[in-house]
Nucleic acid binder design. Structure first.
Length: 600
RNA sequence: GCCCCGAUAGCUCAGUUGGAUAGAGCAACUGCCUUCUAAGCAGUAGGUCAUGGGUUCGAGUCCCGUUCGGGGUACCA
């Protein structure tokens, strides 16, 4: 493993500045970047910032530094100067050795977690148990899973967790609907997936509820009063009270219906390829939160109003007053989060807690951090809200009330159907058995969906148009999968002809073409992409890296024969390069939770 | 009202701590399957980086104003 050329360059540039101009380099003043394609060179040093110390023109300064570098570093073969940019040409040996390292390193680009590595807990998914998962959850799940894998690849121990919102008025609504209009049916008896079954009951409740509101308003009640007095909602509230009191019949029904939903969720998670190491249930954490609030009240951290409601005054931290317990003593959303957080920090030695939750809750997490801080928990301020943007439809936000939600199961199924149809039209996979082909259709379909979502900057809102199905051509998951499949095909052909890749000897050409070098440089940057992706919590960085690499490989592959190349050193280099690109693409895609097939 | 976020090609999105002539894909148009997989490759066309100022050797990127859009804002989760 030879020293990274960038580190060496920084060191020697600093030395050059000292010797030539008597200037001790400040942090960050040495800017190295990849040389633009249209100029000769590999790495470029920006010399503009040095001119005030050299008191010479940018061109002269660059030339002086270039001479110094060429003399001091054997890897610097040549240089040229364009305005204030010093373009350095790094020799072939360096790049070849980078390629050998990449290929020989079993875990190239990945930092293995040590036993004593810091523990990062990542919460994602966080479903309510009254309806199935939709497109918004898909973005959440994919981001949560992917960022967990990326953090692992950066040497952290990661605990993936899920907080299931399994109690509350929303579940009671579905329960009531089942009692009144369910006719004793079950997911088993109807053949409907459990989460969808319960979701339909929830819709049924809302239909009745709406009708009652309309009727009451016709009798002259205001909308607000009608909403409060409709029989359905009163009955649902009764159920919630009974549940809190531990009424056996209600708790049993709650248990049963939640289990239906969990079974459905499990199937969805499995298909999506996400999983969890530890699951928390709100029904088990909300009382802990309530105790914490009451402790805060006793200790004078929080205040109680005349009606019995408990409040936190956060105006000093630039936030508002926040309700913590309702006047009837029941807990609200934030109360439960306090309890959940406390339990987690008790259960694990967490050094970083990451919440993958939509940006509509930015304020909520500011408040949560402030509250935990007030309650005396040193880790409160360290909570990190991984705030991602919403998925919008052409008509705006998804609204379950208007029936514009895109169901997760439906979408995944539809993607598989399209992938299958397309593959059959193209005559792909005809030689495979149905089972094998079906597996690959699924990989491609999910690859398309996952990549479509993950390639977008998580912070930004994104648009999904259900009318136009997700693409399989261009900057897509299948494009990268396709590149990988083709590489594997090349390697299979090589194996058939008994051509072994020779990495140990000097069986490489003395000169490599720009195309190959570009590709090789890209491969060398993979570890940076993984690190960058983890540091900025953005799978999109990795996604775009994989696309660039795949595209460059495809372009290269097109006019650089591999199997028919007669010169052995060149063929050897190209085979090694192909194999390494394949490995990197697979690793990168897997970090995003995307499988890559060996053929497609 | 107040707070937060966003605006880059017809559409969907990239654009590294401020660096060279603004980058892809889709859609449109033109070529390329007798060669290791055409889910591919090569090319044409498409831009006042919402807008007006400012900072400097240099601004899509940083600061201020304006417009438009999204989200939040004390008893939903």
């Amino acid at each position: 493993m030879i020293m990274n050329i960038e580190e060496r360059l920084r060191e020697i540039v600093a030395m050059a500045l000292q010797k030539l101009y008597g200037y001790k380099a400040d942090e960050g003043i040495i800017q190295l970047q990849n040389t633009r394609k249209d100029f000769e060179g590999d790495i470029t040093l920006v010399v503009f910032p040095f001119t005030r110390y050299s008191r010479k023109s940018p061109e002269i300064t660059a030339t002086e530094i270039g001479d110094f570098l060429k003399q001091e570093i054997s890897g610097v073969e040549a240089y040229n100067v364009v305005k204030g940019f010093l373009n350095l040409v790094i020799n072939t040996d360096y790049w070849i050795s980078k390629l050998q390292d990449a290929w020989n390193d079993e875990f190239y680009g990945i930092v293995q977690a040590q036993d004593n590595a810091e523990i990062v807990m990542v919460e994602y998914s966080s479903p309510n148990t009254n309806k199935p998962l939709h497109l918004g959850h898909i973005r959440n799940n994919l981001l949560g899973y992917s960022i967990s894998e990326i953090l692992k690849a950066n040497g952290f121990r990661v605990v993936k967790t899920n907080i299931v919102n399994d109690r509350g008025i929303h579940i009671c609504k579905s329960m009531l609907a089942w009692q009144k209009w369910g006719n004793g049916q079950t997911p088993e008896s109807t053949g409907i997936k459990g989460d969808h079954f319960v979701g339909e009951l929830y819709v049924e409740f809302n239909n009745h509820y709406k009708k009652e509101i309309t009727e009451l308003m016709a009798k002259g009640l205001s909308e607000k009063d009608a909403e409060e007095q409709a029989p359905s909602i009163l009955e649902a509230r009764q159920l919630l009270l009974k549940w809190e009191a531990g009424d056996k019949e209600v708790v049993d029904l709650w248990q049963t219906m939640n289990n239906w939903v969990y079974k459905g969720f499990d199937a969805t998670y499995k298909k999506m390829g996400v999983d969890f190491d530890s699951i928390y249930y709100e029904s088990e954490t909300y009382l802990v939160g309530k105790e914490e609030v009451l402790r805060g009240l006793r200790e004078g951290i929080f205040q109680q109003k005349d009606d019995g409601s408990v409040w936190a005054d956060l105006t000093e931290e630039g936030l508002d007053n926040k309700l913590l317990l309702r006047s009837d003593g029941t807990s609200v959303y934030i109360t439960q989060d306090i309890g959940t957080a406390k339990m987690r920090f008790r259960d694990y030695d967490i050094s970083k807690m990451i919440y993958v939750v939509g940006n509509e809750q930015n304020y909520h997490f500011q408040v949560l951090a402030a509250l935990l801080d007030k309650l005396g928990y040193s880790w409160g301020r360290g909570l990190y809200h991984f705030s991602y943007g919403m998925v919008e439809l052409p008509g705006g936000k998804m609204k379950s009330r208007e029936g514009t939600v895109v169901d997760a199961d439906d979408l995944m199924e539809e993607m598989v159907n399209v992938a299958r149809k397309m593959a059959q039209e193209l005559g792909k996979l005809d030689t495979l058995s149905n089972d094998e082909a079906e597996k690959i259709y699924e990989m491609i379909a999910l690859g398309a969906l996952k990549y479509f979502i993950l390639k977008v900057d998580p912070k930004k809102n994104m648009l999904f148009n259900p009318e136009e199905s997700i693409d399989f051509n261009g900057n897509t998951g299948p494009f990268i999968q396709y590149t990988h499949a083709r590489i594997q095909s090349v390697l299979r052909k090589a194996a058939e002809k008994n051509l072994k890749i020779d990495t140990t000897t000097e069986h490489f050409p003395d000169l490599i073409s720009y195309k190959e070098k570009d590709l090789l440089k890209r491969v060398a940057q993979f570890p940076d992409a993984v690190r960058e992706s983890g540091a900025s919590y953005s799978p999109a960085i990795l996604a775009n890296y994989c696309y660039e690499l795949g595209k460059e490989y495809n372009q290269f592959y097109h006019d650089h024969p591999i199997m028919t190349e007669t010169e052995k050193p060149i063929r050897n280099l190209r085979l090694l390069l192909s194999a390494t690109v394949g490995k990197v693409l697979k690793t990168g895609m897997n970090l995003m939770g995307i499988d890559v097939p060996d053929r497609m």
